[in-house]
Simulated assay, not measured.
Amino acid sequence: MSQTRGWRLVLAPRGAPPSVRLFAARARRHRLRAALPWLVALGLAALLGGAAAVVYLTPALGVERIEVAGAGVLDPASVRAAAAVRDGTPMPRVDVRAVERRVREALKPVRTVRVQTHYPHTLAIAVTERTAVAAVPKVGGFTLLDAEGVAFLPVDAAPPGLPMLRVAQPEPGDATTESALTVLAALSPPVLAQMTALVAESPTRIKLELTGGRVVLWGDATQNAAKVRVLERTTIEAGHTLDVSAPGVVLEK
Protein backbone atom coordinates (compact mmCIF):
# COMPACT_ATOMS: atom_id res chain seq x y z
CA MET A 1 0.00 0.00 0.00
CA SER A 2 1.42 3.34 -1.00
CA GLN A 3 1.28 6.37 1.21
CA THR A 4 1.34 10.02 0.20
CA ARG A 5 4.00 11.88 2.00
CA GLY A 6 3.02 15.37 3.15
CA TRP A 7 5.39 18.25 3.28
CA ARG A 8 5.91 20.10 6.50
CA LEU A 9 7.86 23.21 7.25
CA VAL A 10 11.03 22.57 9.23
CA LEU A 11 13.83 24.77 10.36
CA ALA A 12 17.24 23.76 9.37
CA PRO A 13 19.32 22.92 12.46
CA ARG A 14 22.31 25.01 13.28
CA GLY A 15 25.36 23.83 11.56
CA ALA A 16 23.37 22.26 8.73
CA PRO A 17 24.96 22.40 5.31
CA PRO A 18 24.11 25.50 3.21
CA SER A 19 22.06 23.41 0.81
CA VAL A 20 19.80 22.23 3.65
CA ARG A 21 19.36 25.74 4.98
CA LEU A 22 18.55 27.01 1.47
CA PHE A 23 15.96 24.27 1.02
CA ALA A 24 14.31 25.13 4.36
CA ALA A 25 14.17 28.84 3.48
CA ARG A 26 12.56 28.11 0.13
CA ALA A 27 9.99 25.86 1.82
CA ARG A 28 9.09 28.62 4.29
CA ARG A 29 8.63 31.16 1.49
CA HIS A 30 6.46 28.71 -0.43
CA ARG A 31 4.23 28.11 2.58
CA LEU A 32 3.92 31.85 3.24
CA ARG A 33 2.96 32.56 -0.39
CA ALA A 34 0.34 29.78 -0.22
CA ALA A 35 -1.10 31.15 3.06
CA LEU A 36 -1.11 34.82 1.99
CA PRO A 37 -4.50 34.75 0.13
CA TRP A 38 -6.11 33.13 3.14
CA LEU A 39 -4.62 35.70 5.49
CA VAL A 40 -5.86 38.53 3.24
CA ALA A 41 -9.34 36.97 3.06
CA LEU A 42 -9.47 36.63 6.83
CA GLY A 43 -8.41 40.23 7.21
CA LEU A 44 -11.06 41.46 4.77
CA ALA A 45 -13.72 39.36 6.49
CA ALA A 46 -12.82 40.84 9.83
CA LEU A 47 -12.86 44.35 8.35
CA LEU A 48 -16.23 43.84 6.66
CA GLY A 49 -17.68 42.24 9.77
CA GLY A 50 -16.61 45.22 11.83
CA ALA A 51 -18.06 47.64 9.29
CA ALA A 52 -21.36 45.72 9.19
CA ALA A 53 -21.54 45.78 12.96
CA VAL A 54 -21.05 49.55 12.94
CA VAL A 55 -23.72 50.03 10.25
CA TYR A 56 -26.35 47.59 11.55
CA LEU A 57 -25.85 47.70 15.29
CA THR A 58 -24.86 51.27 16.12
CA PRO A 59 -26.38 54.73 15.42
CA ALA A 60 -23.37 55.74 13.31
CA LEU A 61 -25.74 55.65 10.29
CA GLY A 62 -28.88 56.09 12.37
CA VAL A 63 -32.07 58.00 11.56
CA GLU A 64 -31.77 61.60 12.74
CA ARG A 65 -34.35 63.34 10.53
CA ILE A 66 -37.74 62.28 9.14
CA GLU A 67 -38.84 64.58 6.32
CA VAL A 68 -42.53 64.60 5.38
CA ALA A 69 -43.76 65.85 1.99
CA GLY A 70 -47.30 66.16 0.64
CA ALA A 71 -49.08 66.69 3.96
CA GLY A 72 -51.96 69.17 3.68
CA VAL A 73 -54.82 68.31 6.00
CA LEU A 74 -52.43 66.11 7.95
CA ASP A 75 -49.95 67.40 10.48
CA PRO A 76 -46.43 66.19 9.53
CA ALA A 77 -45.97 65.26 13.19
CA SER A 78 -48.85 62.78 12.91
CA VAL A 79 -47.15 61.18 9.88
CA ARG A 80 -43.91 60.81 11.85
CA ALA A 81 -45.80 59.30 14.76
CA ALA A 82 -47.55 56.81 12.47
CA ALA A 83 -44.21 55.85 10.90
CA ALA A 84 -43.01 54.76 14.36
CA VAL A 85 -39.29 54.92 13.56
CA ARG A 86 -37.18 55.70 16.62
CA ASP A 87 -34.33 58.20 16.47
CA GLY A 88 -31.02 56.45 16.02
CA THR A 89 -32.47 53.37 14.31
CA PRO A 90 -29.73 52.15 11.91
CA MET A 91 -30.77 53.11 8.39
CA PRO A 92 -30.19 49.63 6.87
CA ARG A 93 -32.55 48.16 9.46
CA VAL A 94 -35.48 50.42 8.52
CA ASP A 95 -38.16 48.32 6.79
CA VAL A 96 -39.57 50.93 4.40
CA ARG A 97 -42.51 48.71 3.34
CA ALA A 98 -43.51 48.24 6.97
CA VAL A 99 -43.29 52.01 7.53
CA GLU A 100 -45.52 52.63 4.50
CA ARG A 101 -48.05 50.10 5.76
CA ARG A 102 -48.16 51.68 9.22
CA VAL A 103 -48.73 55.16 7.79
CA ARG A 104 -51.56 53.99 5.49
CA GLU A 105 -53.29 52.01 8.22
CA ALA A 106 -53.04 54.73 10.85
CA LEU A 107 -54.00 57.75 8.73
CA LYS A 108 -57.16 57.54 6.61
CA PRO A 109 -56.42 60.77 4.71
CA VAL A 110 -53.38 59.04 3.15
CA ARG A 111 -54.17 57.52 -0.25
CA THR A 112 -50.60 56.55 -1.14
CA VAL A 113 -47.26 56.79 0.66
CA ARG A 114 -43.64 56.24 -0.37
CA VAL A 115 -40.74 55.94 2.05
CA GLN A 116 -37.08 56.30 1.05
CA THR A 117 -33.80 56.25 2.96
CA HIS A 118 -31.38 59.07 2.21
CA TYR A 119 -27.99 58.28 3.70
CA PRO A 120 -26.49 59.02 6.06
CA HIS A 121 -29.29 60.10 8.43
CA THR A 122 -32.56 61.04 6.66
CA LEU A 123 -35.80 59.12 6.18
CA ALA A 124 -38.11 60.72 3.57
CA ILE A 125 -41.87 60.09 3.66
CA ALA A 126 -43.95 61.35 0.70
CA VAL A 127 -47.72 61.09 1.10
CA THR A 128 -50.53 61.70 -1.36
CA GLU A 129 -53.70 62.69 0.43
CA ARG A 130 -57.22 61.75 -0.58
CA THR A 131 -59.30 64.33 -2.45
CA ALA A 132 -62.75 65.06 -1.07
CA VAL A 133 -65.66 64.86 -3.54
CA ALA A 134 -68.49 65.17 -1.01
CA ALA A 135 -69.27 65.89 2.63
CA VAL A 136 -71.40 63.40 4.55
CA PRO A 137 -73.37 64.73 7.57
CA LYS A 138 -72.76 62.99 10.88
CA VAL A 139 -73.45 63.78 14.51
CA GLY A 140 -71.60 66.95 15.43
CA GLY A 141 -70.33 67.79 11.96
CA PHE A 142 -69.37 66.15 8.68
CA THR A 143 -67.02 63.55 7.21
CA LEU A 144 -65.19 64.13 3.95
CA LEU A 145 -65.63 61.38 1.35
CA ASP A 146 -63.31 60.63 -1.57
CA ALA A 147 -64.16 59.15 -4.99
CA GLU A 148 -63.42 55.62 -3.73
CA GLY A 149 -66.03 55.91 -1.00
CA VAL A 150 -63.56 56.32 1.86
CA ALA A 151 -64.82 58.55 4.67
CA PHE A 152 -61.41 59.88 5.63
CA LEU A 153 -61.62 63.11 7.61
CA PRO A 154 -64.11 64.49 10.18
CA VAL A 155 -64.71 68.25 9.99
CA ASP A 156 -66.91 70.67 11.90
CA ALA A 157 -68.34 72.30 8.77
CA ALA A 158 -68.55 71.26 5.13
CA PRO A 159 -66.00 73.08 2.94
CA PRO A 160 -67.63 75.70 0.67
CA GLY A 161 -68.60 74.36 -2.75
CA LEU A 162 -68.34 70.71 -1.74
CA PRO A 163 -71.53 68.71 -2.53
CA MET A 164 -73.51 67.24 0.34
CA LEU A 165 -74.08 63.48 0.19
CA ARG A 166 -76.51 61.72 2.50
CA VAL A 167 -75.87 57.99 2.71
CA ALA A 168 -76.33 55.76 5.74
CA GLN A 169 -73.00 53.89 5.80
CA PRO A 170 -70.48 55.35 3.33
CA GLU A 171 -67.64 52.94 2.66
CA PRO A 172 -65.76 51.37 -0.26
CA GLY A 173 -67.64 48.45 -1.79
CA ASP A 174 -71.02 49.58 -0.46
CA ALA A 175 -73.49 49.46 -3.37
CA THR A 176 -75.44 52.51 -2.22
CA THR A 177 -72.27 54.56 -1.78
CA GLU A 178 -70.93 53.53 -5.18
CA SER A 179 -74.22 54.39 -6.93
CA ALA A 180 -74.40 57.77 -5.21
CA LEU A 181 -70.83 58.61 -6.24
CA THR A 182 -71.53 57.53 -9.83
CA VAL A 183 -74.48 59.92 -10.00
CA LEU A 184 -72.52 62.70 -8.32
CA ALA A 185 -69.69 62.40 -10.85
CA ALA A 186 -72.21 62.65 -13.73
CA LEU A 187 -73.86 65.90 -12.58
CA SER A 188 -73.04 69.03 -14.55
CA PRO A 189 -71.91 72.30 -12.91
CA PRO A 190 -75.34 73.98 -13.48
CA VAL A 191 -77.05 71.11 -11.66
CA LEU A 192 -74.49 71.07 -8.86
CA ALA A 193 -74.97 74.81 -8.39
CA GLN A 194 -78.65 74.20 -7.56
CA MET A 195 -78.19 71.07 -5.47
CA THR A 196 -78.25 71.24 -1.68
CA ALA A 197 -77.83 67.48 -1.17
CA LEU A 198 -77.73 64.14 -2.96
CA VAL A 199 -79.67 61.57 -0.96
CA ALA A 200 -79.15 57.84 -1.52
CA GLU A 201 -81.42 55.49 0.42
CA SER A 202 -80.44 52.48 -1.71
CA PRO A 203 -78.75 51.88 -5.08
CA THR A 204 -82.12 52.38 -6.82
CA ARG A 205 -83.56 55.14 -4.63
CA ILE A 206 -81.48 58.24 -5.27
CA LYS A 207 -82.78 61.78 -5.31
CA LEU A 208 -81.45 65.31 -5.55
CA GLU A 209 -82.56 68.06 -3.19
CA LEU A 210 -82.40 71.46 -4.89
CA THR A 211 -82.78 75.01 -3.69
CA GLY A 212 -86.33 76.29 -3.18
CA GLY A 213 -87.56 73.00 -1.76
CA ARG A 214 -87.38 71.28 -5.16
CA VAL A 215 -86.71 67.54 -5.45
CA VAL A 216 -85.50 65.41 -8.38
CA LEU A 217 -86.25 61.68 -8.19
CA TRP A 218 -83.21 60.14 -9.88
CA GLY A 219 -83.83 56.43 -9.43
CA ASP A 220 -80.71 54.32 -10.01
CA ALA A 221 -77.28 55.23 -11.36
CA THR A 222 -78.03 54.44 -15.02
CA GLN A 223 -78.80 56.77 -17.96
CA ASN A 224 -77.19 59.60 -16.04
CA ALA A 225 -76.28 61.69 -19.09
CA ALA A 226 -79.90 61.59 -20.34
CA LYS A 227 -81.23 62.50 -16.89
CA VAL A 228 -78.86 65.46 -16.66
CA ARG A 229 -80.01 66.75 -20.07
CA VAL A 230 -83.66 66.53 -19.01
CA LEU A 231 -82.95 68.33 -15.76
CA GLU A 232 -81.01 71.13 -17.47
CA ARG A 233 -83.89 71.73 -19.92
CA THR A 234 -86.71 71.61 -17.40
CA THR A 235 -87.87 74.36 -15.11
CA ILE A 236 -89.05 73.05 -11.73
CA GLU A 237 -91.37 75.19 -9.68
CA ALA A 238 -90.46 75.85 -6.06
CA GLY A 239 -91.66 73.07 -3.81
CA HIS A 240 -92.29 70.69 -6.75
CA THR A 241 -90.83 67.25 -7.50
CA LEU A 242 -89.49 66.12 -10.88
CA ASP A 243 -89.17 62.41 -11.64
CA VAL A 244 -86.39 61.69 -14.16
CA SER A 245 -85.85 58.03 -13.19
CA ALA A 246 -87.12 57.12 -16.67
CA PRO A 247 -85.79 60.05 -18.73
CA GLY A 248 -88.04 59.21 -21.67
CA VAL A 249 -91.12 59.84 -19.49
CA VAL A 250 -90.66 62.83 -17.17
CA LEU A 251 -93.22 63.52 -14.48
CA GLU A 252 -93.60 66.60 -12.29
CA LYS A 253 -95.80 67.06 -9.28
Rank of each mutant, 00 (worst) to 15 (best):
V115Q: 07
N224F: 02
A246F: 01
G161C: 11
P76N: 12
S19W: 10
H118A: 14
L144S: 10
R104N: 03
K138V: 11
P120N: 14
V133E: 06
V54D: 12
A151M: 02
S245Y: 00
G173T: 07
V191G: 02
Q169T: 11
V113P: 09
Q194V: 02
T234A: 07
E209D: 11
T4C: 10
P190E: 09
V155S: 14
E209A: 05
A84R: 08
L107T: 00
R111I: 02
V63P: 06
L32I: 10
Q223N: 13
A46F: 09
E100W: 03
D75M: 00
A51P: 01
G212R: 10
L44Q: 03
A175I: 00
T222V: 09
R233Y: 09
T222F: 04
G49N: 05
E237L: 10
V250L: 01
L44K: 00
L162F: 11
V127H: 01
V183T: 08
A84G: 06
T117P: 11
T122E: 15
R166T: 12
P18C: 02
P109H: 09
Y56N: 04
A71P: 08
V183P: 06
E105A: 15
V250E: 00
A186Y: 05
V228S: 08
L123D: 13
K227V: 01
L11C: 08
S202E: 11
L198Y: 08
T204H: 14
P154K: 01
D146N: 08
T128W: 03
T177D: 14
R31I: 00
A77T: 03
V136F: 12
S188Y: 02
L231F: 02
D174V: 00
A225H: 05
V99E: 12
G141Y: 06
L210H: 07
V215A: 08
V40C: 12
E64D: 13
V215E: 13
G212W: 11
M195C: 06
I125E: 12
R111V: 03
A126E: 15
A132M: 03
L231D: 04
R8C: 07
L22W: 05
A134W: 07
A106M: 03
R233I: 01
L9R: 05
A193M: 08
D87L: 08
G88E: 09
W38V: 04
L22K: 06
M1I: 01
A46R: 05
S245N: 04
G140T: 02
D220N: 10
R166V: 14
R97K: 05
L187R: 04
R166Y: 12
V96M: 05
R8Q: 15
V55Q: 01
V250A: 00
R21A: 15
G88M: 07
V249Y: 03
K253C: 00
A225L: 11
V96Y: 06
L198F: 12
L192H: 03
R166G: 10
